[in-house]
Design a protein around this nucleic acid. Structure first.
Lengths: 231, 231
DNA sequence: ATAATAAACTGATCCAGATCAGGTTTTTTG
DNA sequence: CAAAAAACCTGATCTGGATCAGTTTATTAT
């Protein structure tokens, strides 16, 4: 048995939220009556770190980055995809401002849920509260892996990690059109865009990936995996 | 108003847990009947990443590091001090193994709480469940700051961060006996121990700190703070 | 369709901090 | 209390990846 845990810089949680199924019909109706769906265009800002939270958001469709920044540098905490929450820390009444910003990578549909109603449901329905605890725990565990990756792996490993994450978990196929710029990849893997470009070129030369403009394909999954694990 | 959030590599949450106060007398009795207190000596391992969780742990007294490792490198996620939980992610039934290891910095007393009883209380008592959600949210928010710090600050800033955290939040005084080795400080600030030694020397020369063996004192709080914010 | 702007790419240079290779002091242990 | 083992410290060297300074290729807007 291999008891060494593998940490990846993977940005996305595979867990899709089944927490709405837990609610009673009345509770779900209450939630629906206090929700509204909003469309964001590519690159639009969904929420701003530090701003007051009036809603908990649920990503219905699309892809967004969740990040923090100090005005100069930014750090992508995770990618939010279909079926994940944004601003969930606000269930806790201690947090009434967004702890991070979010921005759409592609056109994205967000369901805004009134936070007081959401909190009320957490109070009323223990199963629902438990589901929220599950999500918060999973998010923590995932961020630990990403944290480890960005602080202890070398650039090649970090980039390989992100590429595998996109292929395995976001697009769920080995070939896809990359909606992210080189700069986006750089932010995700914590390096400069110049370095990303050089390393993508190297991966291409070594026949690990195929990359023509935005068309991306994983050619040698196992070698890429090996790079992601060894650094 | 300064809307730029400051991120520190601070390793410790100031929040002390009042969640036991929420319980009814009967619930607290149930908890007490299913708890046991254990003493750990300095450097003893409290829990091992990957191992099965039978208990949720509450640090009654002492100081411990919470970290993940892959066999070669390790990353300190946080310092656990009095009144904080270890292995709390296990409230979620999805996580039956420890997501991290913990090791005592000093002699430490841990209260082990049966996880099934703990889960039962989360089910029974919504206020308790909410308190747990609060703790999980706070932990996430804190780890974001530390993540940002370790990935985007330079070594001087990271070290200043840790020193201020120890002074402000762990020991709560400007002068104290440092129970951590240079290597421990290095692990906390994500650098080599040689670099820590050189930088401590520099801080000393610049009259920012006083450091004689294990006796540590902050001499110039505001300049150290400035380094932590800009460096 | 064309100008303006942003993204992609390339090569040259530089540096923060790791690593290595010692020596010294403190702590632990038999 | 001496020996062994950690922890601490110092200087020299090395390097991964950032930064800078461009050119070229795509987008976007007019």
């Amino acid at each position: 048995m291999d008891n060494k845990l593998k940490f990846t810089g993977c940005t996305i949680s595979t867990r899709s939220c089944k927490c709405f199924d837990i609610l009673t019909d009345a509770q779900r109706k209450l939630l629906d009556d206090n929700s509204v769906n909003i469309q964001y265009k590519k690159k639009e800002v969904i929420c701003k770190q530090g701003g007051f939270v009036s809603h908990i958001m649920y990503l219905e469709k699309g892809l967004a980055k969740v990040f923090i920044d100090n005005g100069e540098n930014s750090l992508v905490l995770r990618i939010s995809s279909e079926g994940t929450f944004l601003g969930l820390a606000t269930v806790s009444e201690e947090h009434n401002t967004y702890q991070y910003s979010a921005q759409a990578y592609v056109d994205t549909e967000i369901r805004q849920i009134d936070v007081t109603v959401f909190r009320q449901l957490v109070n009323e329905n223990t199963e629902f509260a438990k589901a929220i605890i599950d999500i918060l725990s999973s998010n923590s565990v995932q961020i630990y892996g990403r944290f480890f990756c960005l602080t202890h792996k070398q650039a090649y490993g970090r980039l390989a990690d992100i590429l595998l994450c996109l292929s395995d978990r976001v697009f769920k196929q080995s070939e896809f059109e990359l909606p992210l710029s080189r700069k986006d990849l750089a932010d995700l893997s914590g390096m400069s865009s110049e370095t990303v470009i050089r390393m993508l070129k190297k991966f291409h030369e070594d026949a690990l990936i195929d990359l023509d403009g935005k068309n991306f394909k994983v050619l040698d999954y196992s070698r890429l995996k090996h790079i992601s694990e060894t650094g």
